[in-house]
Design a protein around this nucleic acid. Structure first.
Length: 334
DNA sequence: TAATTATGACGAC
DNA sequence: TCGTCCTAATTAC
């Protein structure tokens, strides 16, 4: 599923292609007919992401809250203004070969985010006729023949401008709310490093973690403690910190908690800028290229159960934590 | 054709 | 801790 980086990227896509435009909204599937009717005909005025939640604001104080859950996805079609990395990576990737994106993705060390973070509206060149699926990964394919395209599958919401179409399917949440309700939702969320890029946010995260007896492996997945981390980033962050996932939050040294926050901020920026969950930055270019070519070989521990730890050779362990699969190295992470 | 899987989250016990 | 909801792609048979 999409972790925080994907949601920020999707939000950027809306900022580039929808904000400022009058939107025609519908629910081809029918399950969001009422909500779509409220939005229909309004101009989108803002697109924001906090953690895994996305908020689209329309004129008149009408907001659409979307959470993609495990397998939600947005499909864009039409004349799409592309993100710089989509333009550089997918533009050459041909059809449905996901490996192409990996091979052409930019060097993470070269990534630069402007101060506005996700509000950077870097677009490369003119809009391009294409179809782009955005979920936990991104896949570009040829543009459909007609515009707007015939809805395929269970499309909960379709948002349409004169030139761009966005279809949402499989969300765990999709609802119309007013600004007060959106504020309440956001207030319940822990800090997101791209939204709250402050010492105060780091401090808040640190204090909350160091107050709780809960295992750090659960705290990192708790969206009220910190926003945007999912099962992949959890495993990788804990490994990068060489931290035992079972350690109670209150027993994790303060400096380690702060380092976790900063590392999350670091990985999230890379993820947003590249569209990849790159958790092994620091590799030399050849090694990185090789790792990106194989999905099962991209991470330190995630989905590597039974394989030797890249550092110490101990077999990576798989266990359940928080009803999710947790991968870790019992030797390195102590 | 069916079973399996997924990078979430919530509510009932 | 368990069941439930959301959907599509992949894998197994």
């Amino acid at each position: 599923m999409p972790e925080g980086h994907s949601v920020h990227r999707i939000t950027r896509q809306f900022a580039r292609n929808f904000v400022g435009h009058v939107v025609h909204a519908s629910s081809p599937q029918g399950r969001f007919a009422e909500g779509a009717a409220v939005i229909d005909g309004r101009r989108m005025v803002d697109a924001r992401a906090v953690g895994k939640q996305m908020f689209l604001e329309f004129e008149g104080g009408v907001w659409l809250r979307v959470h993609l859950g495990m397998y939600g996805a947005w499909d864009f079609a039409g004349d799409i203004r592309m993100d710089a990395t989509i333009a550089s990576a997918n533009g050459r990737m041909g059809q449905t070969n996901q490996r192409g994106t990996f091979l052409d993705a930019p060097n993470p060390d070269a990534v630069v985010l402007d101060a506005a973070g996700e509000n950077s509206l870097t677009s490369i060149g003119a809009p391009r006729k294409a179809r782009l699926r955005m979920s936990e990964a991104e896949k570009e394919s040829d543009a459909p023949e007609e515009f707007p395209p015939e809805p395929v599958g269970q499309v909960r919401v379709r948002l349409l401008t004169d030139t761009v179409c966005a279809d949402l399917r499989g969300p765990t949440a999709c609802e119309v709310r007013d600004s007060a309700e959106i504020e309440q939702t956001v207030a319940k969320l822990g800090p997101d490093p791209l939204v709250d890029d402050t010492d105060a946010a780091e401090q808040r995260f640190t204090e909350v973690v160091r107050r709780k007896p809960t295992p750090i492996g659960l705290l990192l997945m708790d969206q009220s403690v910190v926003s945007g981390i999912g099962n992949v980033y959890r495993a990788e962050l804990l490994y990068r910190a060489r931290l035992d996932p079972h350690t109670p939050g209150k027993l994790v040294p303060e400096e380690t908690v702060r380092a976790l926050w900063r590392d999350w901020a670091h990985l999230l920026r890379i993820g947003v800028e590249t569209g990849q969950m790159m958790t092994m930055d620091g590799l030399d270019p050849d090694a990185w290229r090789a790792a990106m070519a194989d999905r099962a070989d991209r991470h330190w521990v995630y989905k590597r159960e039974g394989l030797p730890c890249r550092t110490c050779g101990t077999n990576i362990v798989l266990e359940e934590m928080g009803a999710r699969k947790l991968y870790w190295c019992p030797t390195c992470q102590t």
